[in-house]
Amino acid sequence: MMHCKNVVLVVEDNALVRFLTCELFEAAGFVALQADGTLAAVHVLETRDDVGLVVSDLAMPSHHDGIALVELVRKRWRPVKLLVITGNLTASRCELPRDAHLFFKPFNDHVLLKAAEDLLQAA
């Protein structure tokens, strides 16, 4: 399965945050796809084979949905990279797979984009 080096799937239930985050990636030269939740995200991943990175909010609508999606991606789409964002400021790293990056809202856009670029460059 070929993964295009710059297709990003943004998974976020807040429409405005989702829109702005997609804009951020698009302005930086990525192709940004949207999903408003786990179901939509799975649909995209099942119908396209070029998604390189999933950028997902953890709490959609509950913390466990986000974790569930992350675990599902890890299990079914191994090569896809994971970048996790959360508004839950006390969320801990240990619930996540080791190679998933964790960011707190509001994230620093430069740091996020750099992390995304690094993740996609890596083999």
């Binding site: 807040n14 405005l16 945050v17 702005l20 985050t21 804009e23 951020l24 302005a27 709490a59 959360t86 508004g87 839950n88 400021l89 707190f104 809202k105 509001p106 994230f107 856009d109």
Partner: peptide, 23 residues
């Protein structure tokens, strides 16, 4: 926790809008 989440989202929106406007 819900309030914290909403505050974080709001700050994210404000920060992103400012950046988007700057772009």
């Amino acid at each position: 926790q819900e309030i914290q989440h909403r505050v974080a989202n709001s700050l994210q929106i404000i920060a992103s809008i400012l950046l988007q406007s700057a772009r």
